[in-house]
């Protein structure tokens, strides 16, 4: 089995993985970071979104071995001490989550979106979240949360 070394939430990790292991499986099963979710098998839903070298990626679309040497942040890495970051806080304040299953992926995508475009318009936010599906909220409160979270992160 190949061995990979990578940084996950700031921690240096070296593990052996089967070649066919998806990155999301590695994160959930090997590292036991279960905040990253699996909602589909065709890379549509975005529940598995994490940051790979600062970019939002769907961790079901790549193999763990492809992440060798990469720097990964999962939802657990955003609030290591339990204190919500401004985007997480905005989701809470705007009721931007209900069942919570899409939420980690949605927040990871939102963080990357705001990093790329610190002052997005509503249209840009809606377009930017196209790769993440939420079935509970109707998106309205998510969009409000991302706009507000972006503002809080700017200040």
């Amino acid at each position: 089995m190949p061995e990979i070394s990578l940084t996950v939430n700031g921690e240096q990790i070296t593990k052996s993985v089967e070649g066919r292991t998806l990155l999301v499986e590695f994160i959930r099963e090997t590292l036991k970071l279960t905040g990253t979710h699996i909602g589909c098998d065709t890379s549509q839903c975005g529940a598995c979104t994490v940051h790979l070298n600062g970019k939002a990626v769907k961790s079901c679309t790549m193999l763990a071995v492809q992440a060798d040497g990469a720097e990964i942040t999962t939802i657990e890495g955003l609030a290591p001490d339990g204190r919500l970051n401004p985007m997480q806080q905005a989701f809470k304040d705007h009721h931007g989550l209900q069942c919570g299953f899409c939420t980690p992926g949605m927040i990871m995508r939102a963080m990357a979106l705001v990093a790329e475009n610190p002052e997005p318009t509503e249209t840009e936010v809606r377009h930017g979240l196209e790769g993440n599906i939420c079935r509970c909220t109707g998106y309205q409160n998510i969009v409000a949360a991302v706009l507000d979270g972006a503002k809080a992160l700017r200040s």
Binding site: H37, L84, F91, K92, D93, H95, C99, F101
Partner: peptide, 19 residues
Amino acid sequence: LKRFEDQRFLTGRGRYVDD
């Protein structure tokens, strides 16, 4: 009232069956 369940959902600490 803001939701109590949000803290665990927002930080990846929800406990769904696959977890």
